Amino acid sequence: MQVAPKPNTYMPFGRGVHACPRSELAKLEVLILLHHLTLSYRWKIVGNEDGIQ
């Protein structure tokens, strides 16, 4: 049983008959971007390691 979303719910690709036909492609593109960002750059922590402030 599927529950209807509450009003003003964030749904970036829509739902049901109004769903974005290219939503899977967009998700794949984001994954590819993250893959290249993590492999192409050297990441390091700057400053103290007390977490997010």
Rank of each mutant, 00 (worst) to 15 (best):
L37D: 03
F13G: 07
Q53N: 10
G16R: 07
A26D: 05
V46M: 06
V3A: 03
C20F: 06
L31S: 12
P12V: 00
P21N: 12
M11T: 12
E49W: 08
I45V: 15
N8H: 14
E49D: 14
Y10V: 05
L37P: 00
V30F: 08
E49A: 13
G14K: 04
S23L: 07
D50E: 11
T38V: 14
S40F: 01
E49N: 13
Y10R: 05
M1T: 00
M1F: 05
A19G: 08
C20E: 10
L33T: 12
L37K: 08
I32Q: 11
V46R: 04
G14S: 03
L37W: 04
N8E: 15
L31K: 14
I45P: 02
R15E: 06
M1L: 03
G14E: 00
I32D: 10
R15C: 06
K44T: 14
S40W: 06
N48C: 06
V30Q: 15
R42T: 12
S23W: 14
G16K: 08
H18N: 02
V17K: 13
V3W: 00
F13D: 12
R15D: 04
N48L: 00
A26V: 11
I45K: 15
Y41M: 08
V17D: 08
L28S: 14
G51P: 04
V46W: 02
V30G: 05
